[in-house]
């Protein structure tokens, strides 16, 4: 199997370079991550993040043949060779396929990703009707892998000011939650040329989400909620 992988070591390299690899997958290798781990046993200087290897932790997001995805969910038999691997577009590269996610998580924290409810909590949990719970489907499953934000042109141009699809999906997850009482404040925070309205509905986010979620739909709902709030 042929691979071309983006290599960059900040201690020794002035510029990144592409390195070719040829490796024979073994019987148990089903996903791209399996091959990467095998490669690492041959060339231990190759750096990438991985943890759960089953699409839950979100650490092995990378650009695979021009599109963002999780190496652990990418089947080998669907890949055109040479398989070209690069770090997530637009993110500062720390080393090889590892990128700096500081800004990404700063945006995530800025939308207050937790329930806000000043009322004293009931004896047991805050109840929701099945309908209220249903509204969180397609929102709570986000694993913050950054595939979407790193595929969003608006995020490439303004990574410090635009919250990006991942952060906005999370924002809507709390706006849509019946147990959260801060909806108005959350919407006020988002009503900004940069934070929300950099989105041009390109839908690259929804195209690449490895969990099949739709950040573009969440953004659409936020805009409509803002419209309702101001009318």
């Amino acid at each position: 199997m042929q691979l071309r992988i983006y290599r960059f070591n900040p201690d020794t390299d002035a510029q990144p370079r592409m390195q070719d690899y040829d490796i024979t997958p073994e019987a148990g290798d089903k996903k791209l991550l399996d091959v990467l781990i095998r490669l690492k046993s041959v060339d231990d200087s190759l750096s990438f993040r991985r943890s759960c290897r089953e699409g839950i932790c979100g650490s092995d997001a990378m650009n695979i043949n021009g599109r963002n995805g999780l190496a652990c969910l990418q089947s080998l038999d669907e890949l055109k060779q040479p398989v070209v691997l690069r770090p997530l577009p637009g993110f500062p590269v720390i080393r090889d396929l590892i990128v700096d996610m500081t800004l990404f998580f700063a945006h995530y924290h800025s939308i207050k990703p937790y329930l806000i409810n000043p009322e004293s909590p009931p004896e047991r949990e805050r109840l929701q009707t099945p309908e209220q719970r249903e509204r969180l489907n397609g929102l709570y499953e986000c694993i913050l892998c950054a595939c979407c934000s790193a595929f969003c042109p608006s995020f490439w141009w303004n990574p410090d000011k635009f919250i990006g699809p991942a952060g906005l999906l999370q924002a809507y997850r709390f706006i849509a939650d019946s147990r959260d009482t801060a909806t108005a404040e959350r919407l006020d925070y988002l009503d900004d040329v940069y934070r929300l309205y950099r989105c041009r509905t390109i839908m690259n986010c929804t195209e690449v989400c490895p969990k099949g979620l739709s950040p573009s739909h969440a953004i659409e709902q936020i805009r409509l909620a803002l419209l309702k709030q101001s009318s």
Binding site: D191, D192, V193, L196, Y197, R223, L226, L227, S230
Partner: peptide, 13 residues
């Protein structure tokens, strides 16, 4: 001037 049409107002316009 950058705020001449900010956020939602620009989007609605």
């Amino acid at each position: 001037m950058v705020r001449l049409f900010s956020g939602q107002r620009a989007w609605v316009a």
